[in-house]
């Protein structure tokens, strides 16, 4: 399934959240978004943002110094 990638490497929170938020605003419900971050704060900030805004976290994982968060755009 295709997904939209948000490159938030080297950005410090809350910028990764802002980048995801601004991207998601233009996407249809059901679209998958993969955020690639380096600030470990993204590991709970992006899921927190998803919870309050009605989006769904599908996966979070760490690959070396990178943190990958995959979410599905909800229908808030």
């Amino acid at each position: 399934m295709s997904k939209v990638v948000v490159d938030a490497r080297r950005l410090l929170c809350p910028l990764p959240v802002i980048r995801v938020q601004d991207k998601v605003a233009a996407l249809m419900p059901g679209t998958r978004v993969e955020a690639v971050c380096t600030d470990p704060g993204a590991l709970h900030d992006i899921p927190a943002w998803c919870r309050i805004n009605g989006h769904h976290i599908l996966e979070t994982r760490t690959e070396g110094d990178e943190i990958i968060v995959i979410l599905e755009v909800g229908n808030p």
């Binding site: 802002i18 704060g41 709970h44």
Partner: peptide, 30 residues
């Protein structure tokens, strides 16, 4: 986020946390 010794306990974003306590949507504007 930058300091290595703090990586084990990254700090939460307080605005997001507050929004979650209130059960409201939050818009973070650059």
């Amino acid at each position: 986020a930058i300091r290595k010794q703090d990586h084990a306990k990254p700090k939460r974003n307080n605005a997001l946390w507050v929004a979650e306590q209130l059960g409201i949507r939050l818009h973070i504007i650059d």
